[in-house]
Design a protein around this nucleic acid. Structure first.
Lengths: 176, 176
DNA sequence: GGCAATCTTCTCGCCGAGCGAGATAATATG
DNA sequence: CATATTATCTCGCTCGGCGAGAAGATTGCC
């Protein structure tokens, strides 16, 4: 029962949150006859649709970290469930374009909707300053995680005390 | 593109963060010959060890949402890798106690160490007030997520939570 | 134009993670 | 002491995901 510093305590809280979210996603997926990967794929496709990025099997597979064969299987399942439709790209007929159906959007809403609503309400109950703190924190953490994810192939030599010292520098690195 | 309210933007950021964390965990696992479930199991076991909670296959399986057969398989793999050791509980000899080896601790440090260090530093660079805001936000979100997880028909009583302090609540869900 | 290199997706065969059912051993309960 | 309960493990099976490679389309080079 050590008492870690406030930093560690917060880290721990954050991790607990992600665990909770994962469990929720897994149980939701199972309840709808989906596998965790299917749900991840669906989310990626919904995101792409929302952002207007054309979705293809290749891109999806890369995002999911799944083989092309596996990607085909995922899409077969999603298509069989009526959540995704495959159409050939008229401009490059090697490609297949993926479009999510209305049903997929509904499903996504069913999963995220209430959750998003509550959390959003929670955020909107904060003052502007508080909100800025939270957003800055999230963006900063994500930036850290992304950096670690990149230096993945080898022994990342980052234990060297990057020294950041005060972690409040410029964040909001990028848009998603 | 569309500009959702500040609430939605924050939600989106949070989700992006969890996705990033998942990918990192997956790639780390793969790099070490582990499966995602193995890594989750290892983390759960390390947590239990840190908190002084006795770890058993049954409890682990419940936390992971995995069958008893699957749990045995997970433990076989971890044991073969020299990360976990099984010993019979002398007080209740049906039980098997799980202890993580030093190697497992090292592995955990290798994964979380640098990340935790940076994020912790980041948190400690915040003022006390800002820290309170962040912690409050994380706790509130987690509470919301946990509530939804309950209503999701998933009976797994993962009360792990923040880890320091509360622990054995005793409210295990076996509503099924 | 024709031929080769390249890209995208899908098919096939296989491995193994995780499930259901049931076996086995130890502990509680009457 | 017999019986129910708890904890873990074994067996057989399904099916998600991987590697290899085929098939169709495009681009580049001569």
């Amino acid at each position: 029962m050590d008492d870690p510093g406030p930093g560690l305590r917060t880290v721990h809280r954050l991790r607990a949150l992600t665990v909770e979210l994962d469990l929720l996603a897994a149980s939701f997926a199972q309840r709808h006859g989906l596998h965790p990967t299917d749900l991840r794929a669906l989310i990626a496709l919904l995101d792409a649709a929302r952002e207007g990025v054309p979705a293809t099997p290749g891109r999806l597979g890369r995002e999911l970290g799944v083989n092309s064969a596996g990607t085909t299987a995922v899409l077969d399942r999603l298509e069989r469930l009526g959540l995704v439709r495959r159409t050939r790209d008229p401009h490059d007929r090697r490609r297949v374009l993926l479009e999510v159906t209305g049903r997929a959007v509904e499903l996504g809403q069913g999963f995220f909707g209430p959750l998003i609503g509550e959390v959003a309400a929670l955020v909107e109950g904060l003052s502007a300053a508080e909100r800025a703190v939270v957003e800055g924190f999230l963006a900063a953490v994500r930036e850290v995680v992304a950096r670690h994810a990149e230096g993945d192939g080898n022994g990342n030599g980052n234990g060297d005390g990057d020294g950041d010292g005060d972690g409040r520098g410029g964040r909001d690195a990028e848009a998603e």
